[in-house]
């Protein structure tokens, strides 16, 4: 299975540095949390990892291979998949076809229909297969995006606030899903504001603030880290 490693990544918007020398590693079989206040640079880091944004400096390695200059589509072929903070579903295709597009682009293309069926069952979306995704509640839409990413059979899965809009019960089921994905050997990176979810499922947590990594470690360490508390709660 593959791992994702970004090192020394810097991205500037005009005079502002959205990311400033950020490094992060996601290992197979582990869930890596990426947290931080709004505007910390979490989604930008996903954009850099998937090739939607070119960093001004820094490298991205996928399974030891330098993919920094690769196009997003080529990175996907290497086993990298993601979801988006702002839903990017194919609004004019049904839920089923959203997953089918991904499955037909993935490694199991010959049995794409079977892959879609299996994922819909796994996520409990079978009843919504023919629904237009735009009519779904946000929480369900996010689950469809997760399903679409899974249809690629990814080795590294980047999830951008996948549990937003879910209730407690759904979040619990989602946590179990993440755990089972990691158990299958997938490297999962989770950007999430639901701290209880992050702290309960993640093996490692990176904390970003103002484009810099301010803390790394297991959840129990991060929970009590002074710098992290200051970043979230302020210095008062």
């Amino acid at each position: 299975m593959a791992s994702l490693r970004v090192s020394g990544v810097t991205v500037s918007f005009g005079g502002n540095r959205a990311l400033d020398g950020v490094g992060m590693t996601a290992e197979p079989g582990r869930i890596t949390g990426l947290i931080g206040p709004n505007g910390a640079g979490k989604s930008t880091l996903f954009d850099v990892a998937t090739g939607l944004r070119r960093p001004s400096s820094g490298r991205v390695h996928l399974d030891g291979r330098d993919v920094t200059r690769m196009r997003p589509s080529a990175r996907a072929k290497c086993g990298l998949a993601r979801t988006f903070q702002r839903l990017e579903l194919f609004g004019r295709l049904s839920v089923h076809d959203n997953l089918l597009v991904a499955a037909e682009l993935g490694p199991e293309r010959p049995r794409a229909a079977g892959v879609v069926k299996e994922i819909l069952d796994r996520l409990g979306l079978t009843g919504l297969a023919d629904t237009a995704p735009d009519t779904l509640p946000t929480g369900v839409g996010r689950l469809v995006e997760v399903g679409r990413a899974l249809a690629l059979r990814p080795k590294v899965l980047l999830l951008d606030e996948p549990a937003a809009g879910q209730d407690a019960e759904e979040t619990e089921r989602f946590a179990a899903l993440l755990r089972s994905l990691a158990d299958d050997g997938t490297a999962v990176v989770l950007v999430e504001h639901d701290m209880s979810l992050v702290m309960s499922v993640c093996d490692d947590v990176y904390v970003l603030d103002l484009g810099k990594v301010i803390a790394v470690g297991p959840p129990e360490v991060i929970r009590n880290d002074e710098t992290v508390l200051a970043a979230y709660l302020g210095d008062a």
Partner: peptide
């Protein structure tokens, strides 16, 4: 067919289509 779905997908979100491995 498959190509039609892909065309619609790339129209609906180029970013999502590309990160799924679609060749624009």
């Amino acid at each position: 067919g498959r190509f039609g779905r892909r065309l619609i997908a790339l129209r609906d979100s180029e970013a999502a289509y590309a990160t799924l491995g679609g060749n624009l």
